[in-house]
Simulated assay, not measured.
Amino acid sequence: MTTTTSTTTSRTLSRPDSLRPFTVGAYGFVLLGVGHLALSAATALTAPTPQQRETDRAMRESAFALMGLERTTLDLFNGLSVAMSFFGITCGLLILAAVRHAPALVRHRTAFGWTALAASLAVLAVSVLLLPPPPIIVLTLTSCAFALSMSRAAPPSARGTTTA
């Protein structure tokens, strides 16, 4: 007589990956910065409409001095626009580097992850109030990606070693 026994292998349910959505959020920041920089360059290279010429003229005529430097409103507008593009690109690239070199910052709920989510949500709020649809769309996706990552991340360890 042959007896067969059945063994059941238990599988541990693994936590969904928190790195992938966080990486998507970081690439969203890079895309936002590159897209904004490209739009600024394209706008500067195209012939302005009569309304744009009038607006540019009015912004050139509106000058102010701050800490000994005289600038026009157009200077300020263009300077902030380009600077924010570079900051968006830089933030995204720094987040990608951190994810690659210190994935525990994302695998656990840390201040690093919460900061990326908070920044994305804050810029999304400003975009909803003041900007056109493209940044609203991209920042909605980045915010959702960072939030999904944080929901998938493990709680911080009791020892506090991963709460950087």
Rank of each mutant, 00 (worst) to 15 (best):
F86W: 13
E70Q: 15
F86D: 04
R107S: 11
E70P: 05
A65R: 14
L124V: 00
A97V: 15
L80Y: 10
L96M: 09
M84H: 04
L121C: 12
A145C: 14
A154I: 01
A125D: 04
A102W: 03
F77M: 12
S149E: 05
L76P: 00
T115N: 09
A147N: 10
V106D: 02
L93I: 14
R107D: 06
L96A: 09
A65E: 15
R100Q: 14
A153V: 08
V123Q: 01
D75I: 05
I89N: 10
T90S: 14
L80P: 01
T110D: 13
V82P: 05
L105I: 02
N78G: 06
A147I: 06
D75C: 02
A98T: 14
L105E: 01
L94V: 08
S127H: 05
R71G: 02
L131W: 08
A119R: 03
A119T: 10
S149T: 04
L105F: 05
V126C: 00
C144Q: 06
L94E: 08
A153L: 08
S151T: 15
I136T: 09
V138H: 00
V106Y: 02
L148G: 13
A111R: 11
M84T: 04
T140W: 00
G79A: 08
L130Q: 10
G92K: 04
A104R: 06
S127N: 12
A147E: 09
G113T: 05
P134Q: 08
G68A: 10
P155N: 10
S149H: 03
L124T: 01
H108C: 06
M150T: 09
C91P: 00
L124I: 00
E70C: 09
C91M: 12
V126E: 03
I137W: 00
D75S: 06
L94Q: 09
R107V: 04
F87Y: 11
A65P: 00
T72F: 03
A154W: 06
R71N: 11
S81L: 14
G79F: 11
F87W: 11
T72E: 05
W114F: 14
L139I: 05
A122F: 13
P132N: 12
I137L: 10
E70A: 13
L131M: 14
F146S: 10
S120D: 06
A122P: 01
A116R: 02
L96F: 07
F86M: 14
L96H: 04
F146V: 09
C91V: 13
I95Y: 11
V138Y: 00
A98H: 11
A118L: 13
H101N: 15
M84N: 03
V82N: 07
A118E: 04
L69Y: 11
R107P: 00
I89S: 11
T72I: 05
L74P: 01
F77N: 10
A125K: 02
